[in-house]
Design a protein around this nucleic acid. Structure first.
Lengths: 137, 137
DNA sequence: CTTGACCCTGTAGTTGCTACAGGGTGCATA
DNA sequence: TATGCACCCTGTAGCAACTACAGGGTCAAG
């Protein structure tokens, strides 16, 4: 299959696929006589793995390690679990941070009663961190 | 005050302050005879506004608009409210997305029982989106 | 008079793509 | 046969919002 079809069946962008190849995340496929990339099922499932992992928020370097494990089924699985657990913790931390932020923002937005910028509570609140209730950052 | 002191009193990085000046977010301050930047209270409060807004997750362009309003107190405040409300909505959307992600990730992590990578449920789950419960991306 | 802390400019790196520019290939249709 | 169109190629530059140098100048203390 050519790159366009691979892109369609995985939902990845063509440029992204070439980018993954360039950074060594995907192996370089065979080329046709016209120098077109030619992919097989192994490429498709590897790309699906990458896209799925990216959608779950793993970094490229984390995915590199996970792929490496996936290529060596005789190794121990603990590294994969460590990566996933660490990532989960980061996601939870990010959620907590965004929730604090949401709290401050909705307090700020709620204060606006319309009118002139000189009296604007939104702008006032942004200028003065002391008006915040919780440590959002 | 020199740039180092401004950085200390606002919590901003020196390089970041110069960066803000370069992109026109902060006005260029006076220079001493030795060509050092020399800041006053107006600079400090403007930078505090910017850092606070960044901590709340506003983009540079949003902050540009907010600063512009802050510089024109005779204008209407509605734009500030529109920006803040829009940003709040984005934060809420991001939280929802991360919560879906957390759900999938904790399901995936929970499946690992140790052992070899070849049998690893974490790696299996990453390779097969169909094993997911909810549409996380 | 030298050490150290501070300041300057300009440029390049970070992450994970995305968007061209400028060209080649392959197939169907007029 | 020409020609139009969809597709492919490489290489480079751009995005956000910084951060990190390299290579140099300034200034006060000991």
């Amino acid at each position: 299959m050519k790159i366009g079809e691979l892109a369609r069946t995985t939902g990845a962008n063509i440029e992204t696929i070439r980018y993954y190849e360039r950074i060594g995340l995907l192996p370089a496929p065979h080329r046709t006589a016209a120098n077109y990339r030619s992919y097989g099922e192994a490429h498709r499932s590897r790309l699906a793995f990458v896209r799925h992992s990216r959608d779950l928020g793993f970094t490229i370097e984390e995915i590199r390690s996970l792929l490496d494990l996936s290529d060596h089924p005789e190794r121990e699985c603990s590294e994969a679990d460590r990566i996933a657990t660490g990532h989960l913790e980061q996601v939870e931390a990010k959620i907590a941070q965004l929730e604090a932020l949401r709290g401050e923002l909705s307090r700020i937005v709620g204060r606006c009663r319309g009118g002139l910028a000189g009296d604007c509570r939104v702008i006032e609140a942004l200028g003065d961190h002391a008006l915040c209730e919780s440590p959002h950052a």
